[in-house]
Amino acid sequence: MPVSTAQHGQPQWRLRTTRAQWLQYLAWLAGVSLFLLCWKLISDNTMWVFVEDAGRQGADLISRMTPPEWSYASQLWKPMWDTLNIATLGTALGIMLAFPVAFLAARNTSPHPLVRSAALVIIVSSRSINSLIWAMLLVTILGPGVLAGIIAIALRSIGFVGKLLYEAIEEIHPTPVEAISATGASRLQVMSYGVLPQVMPAFAGISVYRWDINIRESTVLGLVGAGGIGLQLNASINTLAWDHVSVIFLMIFATVLVSEWVSAKVRHAII
């Protein structure tokens, strides 16, 4: 923290030096300009008449959505069951695939730097691409249905679980691993005795967390034809049956809240 002497001899204290202060001003200026520029681009592409009309549209939407047509709920059990299956089976498949990838990607367990890079590429690609995009691709390849949804969820989960798990592996205590190696254990034995017990709680927590996220993601996969409650949502929107849409929304809301609660409980129990 700089202390300088002013002209009349009194020492002065400032939080930053003059140079740092100017740099900070410049950074703010750059940031604000970037924001304004982006805003301008968006504003150019926007039909402001529609935006001004939004309040009325919103009110209209709400009046169409209420009251929800409760009887429609009885048709939603099967899609909801499909949605749960997509999330659960997809998560299971995803973590099975992510497990070896994470061990290959962690610096301290990877057999070779080249293997490590390959594993990191898998993780990054999987993470960058949203499950909805995976689903779009898989629907054109496998045809519409739950299977495409399961695989889409699995492909997206590899990156998420893989990344968090390999970070957990890199953070383990090295001494037990050293001790197990010193007994003359083989590579796989060192993994199963020295590494695995240390990362197991993290692994379980990450998996449950991802399952919770996947429930949310699998509710929309139907929009591109990959099964689950999204199919009904898409159909209702296309036929402008907004009183059905509100039932679906409430259903999703309840399911996600329950899954979040379950996931929080399980993670709490593990840690």
């Binding site: 549209q57 939407l61 949502l233």
Partner: peptide, 14 residues
């Protein structure tokens, strides 16, 4: 709770 896509549907309507 709601996936971005669901929210987007509503906002696109509005």
């Amino acid at each position: 709770t709601f996936q971005e896509v669901i929210i987007a549907i509503l906002f696109v309507v509005m």
